[in-house]
Amino acid sequence: MVQLRLAAWAEVQTPAGEGLLEPLVSLSLLCFYSLGIPLLGMQAEQHQEEEEEGEEEKEGSGGGCEPEGAFRKNPFQLTVEDVYDISYVLGRELHKISSEPRGEMAAKVAHLQFKVVSVLEMLEALVNESNLTVEALKMERDSLKREVEELRKQGSHSAAEEVSLGPNKMVVDLTDANRPRFTLQELREVLQERNHLKAQLMVVQEELQCYKSGLMSQKQHPIEPTHKEPAVGSASGSSTGSEEKTIVKRLFAFKRPR
């Protein structure tokens, strides 16, 4: 008898998720065996309790809890095993009461026991269902977490590309003929050169004006062959100026003799 009970107990201990049917059958078996216990003598019961203690020790060393522990658990953390523990403890208590030597009592306890069993079966079904739901939700959550992680990686990649541009950067369309492509330094140099040449041109124009208006005194500057120009050039302010002057004078030197 006791062996059978323990076998039933062990069966209940098999991993959850094999379906509701087997634990339910086990539970029913367990209850029926509990009911059957009063038929046995006190000796058998004592023997059973010894076995239980041994079992509890085994459970304890295995990291589990004693059957009574199920009563102290948070209702929302109940497992089907806890329901079986509860049924086992209830069965044992009922058995204790019904084994008292009062005839009518035993029948009432048996009646009560069936009701308790049916309540336990309901509890078993509910706990099983909720645990399965929790399991499914946990799996859903984990897959969503992985998905988010991957999306986050992709996002950080594209974000990194944008960040590398920076807040003060701009994108240039390389096919745009009017795209900016010269530096400020290059522009500065071009402008300097432009303005320098413009200044030189003005010098030349001014000189030309002088010659045209006949300001040049022939006495001061007798027209000489071009090979004597360097003397005039060295007297002028800048070498580029002297070059310009030389060219201008040359032009006029060629013109005058005609």
Binding site: M202, C210, S217, Q220, S238, G241, K245
Partner: peptide, 9 residues
């Protein structure tokens, strides 16, 4: 002022 100086005649 940049070095250019106009001198004439």
């Amino acid at each position: 002022v940049t070095g250019w100086k106009s001198k004439c005649c």
